[in-house]
């Protein structure tokens, strides 16, 4: 009973904050509300007895991804008037979101493996083992992707590129 009430509260928080992300007139406020969404998701993980996931969620998403988004917002141009994003065709967005919601609900209802089980909480060891045995291909593919991203960022930012030099001297 307590768990259900707790879940309701946290889930309500997430939904509310997510709505506020979508409604935010100011990009920075949007990012901060997104932080609330991500933090509350970490609480959900704690309630599902997956503390490791919760810690990772806080460290990577709230600590890392949000910071990057903040940097992204701050390093790009935002005029006061431009920042208030115009919402074209809100009904289209609504229909699309409802469609997505329907898809998720049917997927959760029909897939047998997604029901919460009372299994023993996953330890760091279990997660590590399954990452390096069962899911090793996905793991390595992700590493490769991240490496490519990093190299791409470095190449884009190289200072000795001729076109870049021209831009700077202007």
């Amino acid at each position: 009973m307590i768990e259900q009430v707790g879940f309701g509260l946290v889930a309500g928080c997430i939904v509310l904050a997510a709505l506020l992300v979508a409604r935010a007139k100011n990009a920075i406020h949007g990012v901060l509300w997104l932080g609330v969404v991500l933090g509350a998701t970490a609480v959900l993980y704690v309630m599902l007895r997956a503390p490791f996931l919760a810690g990772i969620q806080l460290l990577l998403y709230v600590g890392g991804v949000m910071t990057l988004m903040i940097l992204g917002v701050m390093l790009t141009r935002h005029d006061q008037h431009e920042a208030a994003l115009e919402r074209k065709r809100p009904w289209l967005a609504g229909v699309l979101s409802l469609f997505l919601l329907g898809m998720l609900v049917t997927a959760i209802q029909t897939s047998p493996e997604l029901h919460a089980s009372e299994a023993a909480p996953a330890t760091v060891k279990d997660i590590g083992r399954s990452l390096l045995t069962e899911h090793v291909l996905a793991f390595e593919a992700l590493s490769l992707l991240l490496l490519a991203t990093m190299i791409g960022a470095i190449v884009l930012l190289r200072r000795d590129r001729p076109d870049r030099l021209v831009e700077e001297s202007r």
Binding site: I28, I56, M66, T123
Partner: peptide, 25 residues
């Protein structure tokens, strides 16, 4: 005494940055 104590410390440490930035902005 959390099982993931180290991770907790690092995660909360990473969080401190957000209010600092919020104040500055």
């Amino acid at each position: 005494d959390l099982d993931i104590g180290v991770l907790y410390v690092l995660a909360v440490n990473a969080l401190v940055l957000i209010p600092v930035w919020m104040g500055g902005w």
